[in-house]
Nucleic acid binder design. Structure first.
Lengths: 163, 163
DNA sequence: GTACGTTTACTGCAAACGCAACGAATGAGA
DNA sequence: TCTCATTCGTTGCGTTTGCAGTAAACGTAC
């Protein structure tokens, strides 16, 4: 027993539209909006880093932290840039193999390691920082007045306890 | 040759802080904010659907579209809810095995299939809709005045051509 | 000094994802 | 009618992800 609506769909073209037109009920659902927007922006920036230096997003996040705050342990990076410790560990391995970071033992804690940028990578980060800043500026310009409030709301979500 | 900063990190505790305190430069970077916020909210809602009905997010997105717009093809769903066709296809298979949707042939296009809710799942969706609405209401309340502007900005990002 | 819980980093594994290739079906155009 | 490009859905494959488990080092309490 099918509704008349169902019959409409069953006839004519199988796929009604090609554009990614999002139905109303979805366009008002915040988790959906957030997910789609984040994926979109994330892809754009990931492509940038990959094209420029063959970096993944976790790699880039860790490097940025090192670049800005100086040498740090895996645990440090994990806590600061919202990444799983396994992901940071693997990223560190790849980056060391690529000569982007150096890893040495911690002075006083023999469990820990210390990651730090090489001279080679300091120049790389300078270039990447410029690119990231420019891309973000473009993004903010597209968003115009909404930008600052968007960031304010996102910060609130991030800081929110959890539940 | 290490900077004095490096020496500081190399001594004392390996992991300086335990809280997820995000360094300033990151907290201002939009793609980062967006990613972290989306992951956080997405996890929260995913846990909700899983606990309530054992549904994944792709499954839930597809079902919601079916629930709201009536029977649709895989391609339809793909276009409307921002999912890869492979993901939609697999979700459809799982949902059919679970008796949540029925799949039949398209009337006029023999390549296509038509997914539609079963009576059983219509009741399920009603319950899920209530839960999702309540959770979103809670979220919007937490965000207070920022909410509408957040949504406005996200919509702009989503609609934005691409570059 | 010894025992025990915690921290640090690494690794293994299952699940999910994105992409591309494929076969079947379609339909537009010669 | 006969191509041939396109569309629809499925499947396979490599990568990434998140989580749990492991071993070593640490440090606190006794």
């Amino acid at each position: 027993m099918l509704s008349s609506r169902a019959l409409l769909v069953r006839q004519g073209r199988a796929c009604t539209r090609k554009e990614h037109r999002i139905p109303l009920h979805f366009s008002e659902f915040l988790p959906y909006q957030l997910g789609v927007a984040a994926t979109k922006i994330s892809r754009r920036f990931a492509a940038l880093y990959r094209a420029e230096a063959g970096l993944t997003i976790p790699e880039w996040r860790g490097l940025t932290h090192l670049d800005h705050s100086g040498p740090a342990s895996v645990c440090d990076i994990t806590a600061r840039v919202h990444l799983d410790k396994g992901i940071v560990s693997r990223a560190a391995t790849r980056l060391e193999q690529g000569g982007i970071v150096s890893i040495s033992d911690h002075e006083t804690d023999r469990r820990a390691v210390v990651l730090y940028l090489t001279d080679k990578s300091r120049a790389l980060m300078q270039r990447l920082r410029r690119i990231a800043d420019a891309s973000q500026a473009q993004l903010l310009q597209d968003l115009q007045d909404d930008a600052s409030l968007l960031q304010q709301a996102l910060k609130r979500i991030i800081k929110e306890p959890s539940a």
